[in-house]
């Protein structure tokens, strides 16, 4: 019961989709199953939020190291959620002015918009911008031409780095258009070698996905069910 039914559900859902791909009249079943998937995906966000709440509440109640930060996280989470769900400060849609709830949840001037614009955006973007610094120190300390493979990689990377700026154009300005660095990178490195490598990787991974999916559908692979209870 705890394992057989889930395996059956997985197999049937997958097979319906596969059949729908080949049999036009079955397409609408496929659409229905897909809509369910989307609704479940939304529930998964709630599961994520719930787990976060649970985890941080535990940290606070246990007074674990750094529990103050957990409190900040929960506060930020709670405020965002409440102002978002209740559409605080959101104006109604101009098409339906008499329906106060018709506005978009991220509507301009709303509280959620403010949080998104002035808290989420800078934090998210700066987190990734940090990587520029990490790359620079890694360039100095970690990227060594230890063997032939690493050598090929670093030489290619250097050529691409130079070629993708004005430096590349500057160095090869006088040459025939085909022998300009940007063109060489694009025509040879990107379109020939990189494409060949990417294609082979894609073919391999596609076969891997097919065989893994097949194992899920026939019930051989049950790792997603976790351990025995």
């Amino acid at each position: 019961m705890k394992r057989t039914i889930p395996v059956l559900i997985a197999s049937i859902a997958g097979l319906v989709l596969i059949i729908a791909h080949f049999v036009p009249p079955a397409q609408s079943w496929g659409d229905e199953v897909n809509t369910w998937f989307q609704i479940l995906a939304a529930f998964a966000f709630f599961l994520g939020g719930g787990s976060l709440l649970k985890m941080h509440l535990k940290r606070i109640s246990d007074q674990q190291e750094g529990w103050g930060f957990s409190a900040v996280t929960l506060l930020a989470f709670g405020i965002t959620l409440i102002v978002g769900i209740f559409k605080l400060g959101v104006l109604p849609s101009e098409t339906y002015p008499t329906k106060p709830w018709s506005g978009e949840y991220l509507g301009d001037g709303g509280a959620l918009w403010w949080i998104y614009q002035y808290l989420f955006t800078p934090l998210n973007a700066t987190m990734f911008a940090l990587l520029a610094f990490f790359i620079s120190s890694a360039a100095f300390r970690a990227f060594r031409a230890k063997n032939t493979e690493a050598m090929i990689l670093l030489v290619t990377a250097t050529i691409v780095l130079v070629g993708r700026t004005y430096a590349g154009a500057f160095l090869t300005e006088g040459f025939n258009p085909h022998w300009q660095l940007a063109a060489i990178i694009d025509e040879w490195f990107m379109s020939v070698f990189n494409t060949a490598g990417a294609r082979a990787i894609k073919i391999g991974i596609a076969l891997g996905v097919v065989s893994t999916s097949l194992k899920v559908l026939i019930g051989t692979d049950r790792s997603y069910l976790g351990s025995e209870e």
């Binding site: 890694a138 300390r141 970690a142 990227f143 493979e149 690493a150 990689l153 990377a157 991974i205 891997g208």
Partner: peptide, 28 residues
């Protein structure tokens, strides 16, 4: 991760199918 591992002089072995991250593992 790979850079920190390198800075403490550890032997590092990696494996992933994320092709965009493979360059960093291969290099470091």
């Amino acid at each position: 991760l790979a850079e920190t591992g390198n800075s403490i002089g550890a032997i590092q072995v990696a494996g992933t199918a994320e092709s965009s991250q493979l360059p960093f593992f291969v290099a470091a």
